[in-house]
């Protein structure tokens, strides 16, 4: 068992001519919480999509839990133990809360291939447990997601990661749409993960939040990782300098 839970080597993604991600070398140790920061379009979500099997990287390696993986679907990444809250939330508006929590991995009573019979009661109970665990408040589980507030939707997406045992949690801007209280709640969930020793990648634009929660900050700029800073060695101004390009990757390499 290695100390490193996730490592990427030379991870690159091109969309046609767009170089959204270039040669990303990233490491995450067990129990560590790392923030990914960077301007809009810096490639943060692209990076997340490559390591969660949503897309296949143009080139580069992904090592998870000591094994090289090339996930061809989000299911594979999940089965390996990566739970993700996507920026787009990936919720089905017309389904209720339990259906969304178990979307793509429904509990079943009889296995009949695609026509397997759903175990609705078990999913409902597991949903209640997951919501309790995360302290998420939702008045009626049987409501469709469409009728919920932005914060409640976000909470459902986060509870989805809590309903399953995982080795790594990734959250892409989980508090972007949330009010003060809901943000605090999500941050509490993240602290609980930290106490439980579960590693986390947090994509966020919120400097205060990042300095409150994580151990290390990785800065993306124009598809490249330009800085990898331990929290105690840096401050907000320094991070902003890397985000805006006032300080460059070369400065960082020189300093290290």
């Amino acid at each position: 068992m290695t100390d490193v839970i996730l490592e990427t080597r030379g991870l690159t993604k091109h969309y046609g001519g767009v170089h959204a991600l270039t040669e990303a070398n990233f490491t995450l140790r067990r129990g560590e919480h790392v923030a990914i920061m960077g301007d809009n379009g810096a490639g943060k979500s692209t990076f997340v999509r490559q390591i969660t099997g949503v897309e296949m990287p143009t080139r580069g390696q992904i090592l998870f839990d000591g094994v090289e993986h090339s996930f061809t679907s989000p299911i594979e990444a999940r089965e390996a133990g990566i739970e993700t809250v996507f920026q787009t939330l990936a919720l089905a508006d017309d389904l209720d809360v339990p259906s969304n929590l178990f979307l793509g991995r429904e509990k079943i009573r009889f296995n009949l291939g695609p026509f397997s019979i759903l175990d609705k009661r078990a999913m409902r109970e597991a949903t209640l447990a997951a919501l309790q665990k995360t302290g998420v408040k939702i008045p009626n589980l049987m409501n469709t997601i469409r009728n919920m507030s932005g914060g409640q939707r976000q909470c459902v997406a986060i509870a989805r990661t809590a309903a399953f045992r995982s080795k790594l949690v990734i959250m892409d801007e989980p508090t972007a749409a949330l009010g003060v209280q809901e943000t605090a709640q999500v941050e509490n969930i993240i602290r609980t993960l930290k106490q439980a020793g579960e590693p986390l990648i947090l994509v966020s634009h919120n400097m205060r939040q990042v300095f409150d929660l994580v151990d290390r900050i990785v800065v993306f700029r124009r598809g490249r990782i330009v800085a990898d800073l331990r929290k105690q060695d840096t401050d907000g101004q320094d991070v902003v300098a890397y985000i805006t390009g006032a300080k460059t990757g070369a400065d960082f390499q020189g300093a290290a």
Binding site: I75, R78, L89, A90, D94, L95, L103, L112, F115, L118
Partner: peptide, 26 residues
């Protein structure tokens, strides 16, 4: 089929948000 099976559930999921269904591994 539409109310009790995985097939039905996935019909609704894909119809309400195809990208989400894909990301959820359907």
């Amino acid at each position: 089929i539409m109310t009790q099976t995985k097939y039905g559930r996935h019909c609704y999921a894909i119809g309400s948000n195809e990208a989400a269904a894909r990301m959820s591994g359907i």
